[in-house]
Write a protein that binds this DNA or RNA. Structure first.
Length: 374
DNA sequence: ATGTAC
C-alpha cells in the first residue's frame, strides 16, 4: 500500500517527470503516509527536492546532507546603495572569520567553516524591497518599498554532511536506527545553520559599514520534525504553518517574501525557491552558448553577481531555474501562501574564488576556454 | 549539497 501524493502546481507549470517518479518512489517506502510536492519540485539525489514527506519512520536521506539549510532576511540600512561599489566591499564568505561569534555558543562545538556560504545554490544577497503586496503585513515586519535587506541562503556545511554520512555508512537509505539520537544531531545542525546565516549577515553588515539587525524571517527547508506522532521530512520545502518565508528567485530575478498558511495536504509546507528547471550539466552546456559571463555578472535587473567560479555562474544562471512568478502564483492559487513583498537584488555574493585546480581539469577545459563572445 | 571521491 503506497502513500498518497499531491503536487501543488498548475498544469502549465513545468514539473520534470523524473521528480514525479521520485515522489512515487518515496511514497512506496515502508511507513510512508503522504508526499506533498511543491511547485518548485525537481529531481534530487534519490529523493525529490521541493517536497514534504510524512511517514511513521524517520529517513535521514529524505532530509539530505545539508540539514538546516535555509533562508534568512535581515533589515539593513545603507546610505547610497550603488551595486558595483558595494560588491567590491563584500567580505570573503568562502573563509571563516572567528571574530564574529563566541565559540561557546556554537552548536556541537563545530566552529569550522562557521560564517561561510558554501557553494551550489547558496548565496548572500543585498536586495531592496520592490513591490509591497500586503502593506499591513509588511509594516509588521518593518518593511516598506525601497528598504534594503540582506538575504542569506546557506546551511550547516560540513556538520550536516557529517551527520548524514555517519548514518549512511551504517544504514544506507534505511531508517534511523536511533531516531532520538539522529534528531538530537539534526537539531544541532538546524541551530548551526541559523547561526551560520546570522554570522554571515553580521560579517556583510560590518563590511558595508552598517549595524547587524536580527532577522525578520529565518526558515530552514531541509529538516524533519515530529508532528502528530509522525515524521514530517522537508527537502527543499519550508515550514508553511503560519510562517513568513522568503521564497528565493534567482541570481538576476526578484524573490518573494510570503505569508505561508499551508495545511495537511501540503505537508504544512511551502516552496523554498524557483526550483531548478535544468540539471547543472545542462545549464552549463546551454548557458555557455546562450549567455556571456558579463551578462550573468551584471543582470537584467541591474544587480551585480560576485562569482569567481565561471562554471557555477552558468549553473546558477536565471534561465536554469523556473520562473519564480509562476511558482509563487501556484502557491497563491492553491491557498498555500499570500504575497507580502518582492525583493529585487542589488548584489548577490556567490563565491570569490575559483574551484580547486583538480575539478577544473576534470571539466576538460581550462578557465580561458569558458570566455564567451557576444 | 559536501574540507567531495580512491
Amino acid at each position: 500500500m503506497s502513500a498518497t501524493v499531491s503536487v501543488f502546481a498548475s498544469p502549465s507549470s513545468w514539473i520534470e517527470s523524473g521528480a514525479l517518479d521520485q515522489c512515487h518512489q518515496v511514497a512506496a517506502l515502508p511507513g510512508m503516509r503522504h508526499v506533498a510536492g511543491m511547485p518548485d519540485l525537481h529531481p534530487g539525489k534519490g529523493a525529490p527536492i521541493g517536497a514534504a514527506m510524512t511517514s511513521s519512520v524517520l529517513y535521514p536521506f529524505l532530509v539530505g546532507s545539508d540539514i538546516g539549510c535555509g533562508i534568512a532576511v535581515f533589515p539593513i540600512r545603507l546610505k547610497r546603495p550603488v551595486p558595483e561599489k558595494l560588491a567590491a566591499r563584500f567580505p570573503d564568505l568562502d573563509v571563516p572569520d572567528h571574530s564574529f561569534f563566541d565559540e561557546a555558543d556554537v552548536p556541537a562545538g563545530w566552529t569550522d567553516s562557521l560564517g561561510t556560504v558554501g557553494r551550489g545554490n547558496h548565496f548572500a544577497e543585498l536586495a531592496r524591497v520592490g513591490t509591497v503586496f500586503d502593506a499591513e503585513h509588511a509594516a509588521r515586519l518593518g518593511l516598506s518599498a525601497g528598504d534594503l535587506v540582506l538575504i542569506v541562503h546557506s546551511g550547516s556545511r560540513g556538520l550536516g554532511e557529517r551527520i548524514l554520512r555517519a548514518h549512511t555508512e551504517a544504514h544506507g537509505a534505511g531508517p534511523a536506527a536511533d531516531p532520538q539520537a539522529y534528531l538530537a544531531a539534526h537539531d544541532d545542525a538546524v541551530r548551526w545553520g541559523s547561526l551560520n546565516r546570522r554570522v554571515m549577515a553580521a560579517r556583510v553588515a560590518d563590511a558595508l559599514g552598517a549595524a547587524a539587525e536580527p532577522p525578520i524571517v529565518d526558515e530552514c527547508h531541509n529538516s524533519v520534525e515530529v508532528r502528530d506522532g509522525l515524521y514530517l521530512h522537508r527537502k527543499g520545502a519550508a515550514r508553511g504553518d503560519g510562517r513568513d518565508v522568503l521564497v528565493a528567485g534567482t541570481r538576476g530575478t526578484p524573490s518573494f517574501l510570503v505569508a505561508a498558511h499551508a495545511g495537511a495536504e501540503a505537508g504544512f509546507s511551502v516552496a523554498h525557491g524557483a526550483g531548478r528547471k535544468m540539471s547543472r550539466a545542462d545549464a552549463l552546456r546551454r548557458g555557455k552558448v546562450k549567455h556571456t559571463v558579463e551578462e550573468l555578472r551584471r543582470t537584467a535587473v541591474g544587480s551585480v553577481v560576485v562569482c569567481g567560479d565561471r562554471q557555477l555562474l552558468f549553473e546558477e544562471a536565471p534561465g536554469a531555474y523556473k520562473r519564480i512568478e509562476q511558482v509563487i502564483g501556484d502557491l497563491v492559487t492553491h491557498g498555500l501562501a499570500t504575497r507580502v513583498v518582492s525583493t529585487v537584488p542589488l548584489v548577490t555574493y556567490k563565491t570569490a574564488g575559483v574551484p580547486p585546480i583538480a575539478s577544473r581539469r576534470r571539466s576538460g577545459r581550462g578557465p580561458q576556454s569558458l570566455a564567451t563572445t557576444p
